[in-house]
Each structure stands twice: as C-alpha cells, then as structure tokens.
C-alpha cells in the first residue's frame, strides 16, 4: 500500500472548548490514484489533508507513506520530506507575491538543491508549457487571473515530480468552467505521469471528474 492513514483523531480547542474535527479516520490510497475528498464545509477535509501532508499533527493515529512512518518525524525531518515528496495546491493559490510565475514554480527546485540552474530552468519551462502558461512566466501573481494563478500553483506542485499531490479545494475560488479545466488538467497529469492526487471539494459537479471519492461528514468517513 502506498499511503496508509490509521485511526487519526484531531481535536481543536476554541479557547477551552474542545471540538473534535476528525474521528478515527482510516484510509488506504494506492499509487496513481486520483482521489477526491468530498464533504460540506466544516466536515474536516482541510484538517485531514493537512495531517496527510504533515503540516499538522494528529492527536493520535499514524500516517505511512511507502511504509515509512511520517507521524514520528520531527519538524525539520518533515520539512525535508515535504520538500522531496509532496506537492501542495491551495484554494487561495498562495503564490509568493514578490516572485514571478517562473520563480514561484522554480522555488521548490531551489529549495531541493538537486538540480543545476539550467536544469531547473528547463524543468520549469516544460511544466509551465504543460499547464498552458507559456509566455506568462514573467508575470507576478497579481498580474494573473485566478485560473492562471491556480495553474502556476499546480506547476509549482508538480515540477519536482512528487510522490503525492495534495490539493485543498483547488477550484473553490474559481468559476465552474475554469474549475473543471483545472481538474481536467490535474487528471491529465495523473494519467500521463502516474502522479498520485488527493484533492478536496464540496462541489458535486467537480466530483464527477474523480476516479475515487471519499466522503466525509462531521469528521467521519461515511462511505
């Protein structure tokens, strides 16, 4: 099994009032899946994705990838792991406003320090072409439309060939049409390069593009 999530619980505290956002979540994902995490707002999608992506810690439970136990690593080890193996796509794109599209996509490679400048340049240009942003590489995020920004963010997630891409409501800030092209784009990547995707959405129309759907309600898996 590629990704295993076992018995995850997560409780938030708003002040002193506890709120359990996730209840005993157990999941298996095989390599190359294109999985959607569905559920209404507040059902725990973001929380679960964050825990899988190791940018949040569960109260208990374990996350394995390729047999490696991630929940036991310290914060630096996790940073290094994310750097190599994860790609993130956010609802609000979260591009760095002071960097151009090109530089935003290049950023993960710079952090990774595995490629020479010219190598990484080729990789960035190739992926930008793939997401259909050829010629826009020197624009800053604020000079791009929402759909274009999300394409940059997809390129940023994909450029280093990660094992797993986590996308938290990648279409929620876009109109339906643009949203569908974005999901199609992700699906295309999944087909061509066999990259594993998990994305969340609360939009039934987007859901039909997924190959597998995991439904969440009130912090529990319901299918």
């Amino acid at each position: 099994m590629f990704l295993e999530v076992t018995d995850i619980n997560k409780t938030y505290y708003a002040g002193k009032v506890p709120f359990q956002a996730l209840h005993d979540i157990t999941l298996d994902i095989t390599k190359g899946e294109f999985t959607a995490l569905a559920g209404p707002s507040g059902s725990g999608k973001t929380t679960l994705l964050n825990i899988i992506g190791c940018i949040d810690k569960p109260d208990n439970g374990e996350v394995f990838i390729d047999g490696e136990l991630l929940t036991e690593k310290n914060s630096d080890e996790l940073a290094f792991y994310r750097r190599e193996h994860f790609g993130f796509i956010f609802q609000t794109y979260n591009l760095i406003p002071i960097l151009t599209a090109f530089e935003n996509v290049e950023l993960p490679l710079r952090i990774l320090k595995q490629y020479s400048k010219s190598q990484s340049k080729d990789m960035v240009m190739q992926i930008l072409k793939k997401v259909g942003l050829e010629g826009l590489e020197n624009r800053k995020p604020l000079e791009l439309s929402g759909g274009q920004q999300q394409r940059v963010s997809i390129a940023r997630a994909l450029v280093k060939n990660p094992k797993l891409i986590l996308a938290d409501e990648p279409t929620a800030n876009l109109d339906l049409e643009t949203g569908e092209t974005i999901v199609d784009l992700m699906k295309g990547m999944n087909d061509e390069d066999n990259v594993t995707f998990i994305f969340s959405t609360h939009d039934e129309l987007i859901l039909k593009h997924a190959k597998r759907v995991i439904r969440l309600r009130d912090g529990r898996v319901i299918n």
């Binding site: 940018i55 993130f88 952090i111």
Partner: peptide, 16 residues
Amino acid sequence: LREIGTLKAIGMTDRD
C-alpha cells in the same frame, strides 16, 4: 503568515 505556511509546506525549514 500564510506565505510562511506555504513555504513551510513546500519544504522550507524553520531555520530557513
């Protein structure tokens, strides 16, 4: 903060 979070998500360490 959101930018810092993003940078950390893509693999920057606290030290960076």
